[in-house]
Design a binder for these strands. Structure first.
Lengths: 217, 217
DNA sequence: CGCTATAGTTACTAAATAATAACTATCATC
DNA sequence: GATGATAGTTATTATTTAGTAACTATAGCG
């Protein structure tokens, strides 16, 4: 029902681009010029369609009054644009509940909420939040309930804190590259490290922990 | 040089408010209506003045093309508006380096950087970030270098983590209200608690820690 | 084939909007 | 008292802009 036609997509994309470049919305003539159509009736109908489908709102009679609906910044399309784009202050990222192999393409149903962060934290694509479960990293001052900002990457640097998929469950571990293996070390003396030798275990590195966010009270 | 007159301030304020409410800029007539002046020449001159002083930019001939300069969101005036206002996604808060008695009015020189946060974290006024020094709260998983989001308040609830001014220095402590005194307990066995009896010590509660933000790598 | 949705054209109009001209008033400063 | 900056008025105008009317074209579908 909310699917967009190709033409509607390019209208939508042009509006986001124009808003980023100018700081305000395009007029219908601006859009018509970009679409290379003459007259603005076509544009009006596209906008009406986009409005009906919930992608934007307008104020009748007011010029340049297009307002994009923020909740329609759905993963991954619009989000990619926001992360890679010239977003001025902050971007929206999904908070995924349970991490699966599908990363970095979390299914929309898994998105529990959204958080905004400083733009420069999310330079590269696909970044997302993960809600921390368990106390495996308690000695690194990361606790249950914290939000970990994850940058998806398969490799990691020595001593990075990473998200690893162990037995189908996402856990945080510190990454150590050693002689002939990789060691994923929990920062909790009560837990055992995981040793991975070449193509041996069912363990996948999903990404690196870039920052930690905790809400008190 | 960049000081604003009273009238210019109210123009500026109206534009920010209008943008927040509508998602796009007001027309000159909108502004004139708000100022209760007839004709829009006055408005044009105010906008020209604001533009010359660097507070906004416009595109000649384009309607509703006012674009506020983001860097002019200086503490405390514009910031207060942002915090109290209907900011949709996130607000900008100063990160203060050393906390002094002047809170919640940190002098601008102390602002080291800015961070954006989720809007609903900053409902009440004056909120700011404090860069954590020392390890007095290490057992509460708060470490040196973390950013603590502080909501200024003189009172605190039992077991809140608060910022206290002890000997002119800001430190984090957990707040305990007990029989005939208040106890400020570090979450580090190596440190001693501070006991405060009625108007006895030179200790001030500055605010409550609302959230913690940590950047890795 | 007829029906519907999408997409486009030309021509037009009314309202919204930005901008200018000519003039007055107040206040601080030299 | 003159000068300049700020602030305001009424009147007018040209352009921008949103929206409408009437018509054509294509593609998918039953």
């Amino acid at each position: 029902m909310n699917e967009l036609t190709e033409r509607q997509k390019s209208v939508y994309n042009f509006i986001t681009t124009y808003q980023k470049q100018h700081g305000y919305s395009p007029s219908m003539q601006d859009i018509a010029g970009h679409l290379q159509v003459s007259g603005n009736l076509g544009v009006i109908r596209h906008l009406t369609a986009l409005e009906k489908k919930g992608y934007l709102t307008r104020t009748p009679g007011n010029s340049r009054s297009i307002k994009l609906t923020p909740s329609f910044s759905s993963y991954p399309e619009s989000l990619e644009r926001m992360i890679h784009g010239e977003e001025q202050f902050s971007v929206f990222l999904p908070v995924v509940g349970s991490v699966r192999a599908g990363i970095p393409q979390p299914p929309e149903e898994d998105i529990q909420e959204y958080r905004s962060i400083d733009r420069d934290v999310a330079r590269s694509g696909g970044t997302f939040f993960l809600k921390v479960k368990g106390d495996s990293m308690i000695e690194a001052s990361i606790r249950e309930g914290d939000l970990a900002l994850i940058r998806p990457q398969e490799a990691a640097q020595h001593r990075d804190i990473v998200v690893a998929l162990v037995d189908g469950e996402a856990t945080l571990k510190r990454f150590y590259r050693e002689a002939d293996h990789i060691r994923l070390q929990p920062e909790n003396a009560a837990y055992q490290p995981i040793i991975i030798r070449e193509g041996e275990k069912d363990v996948t590195i999903i990404g690196k922990v870039v920052s930690i966010y905790r809400s008190l009270d």
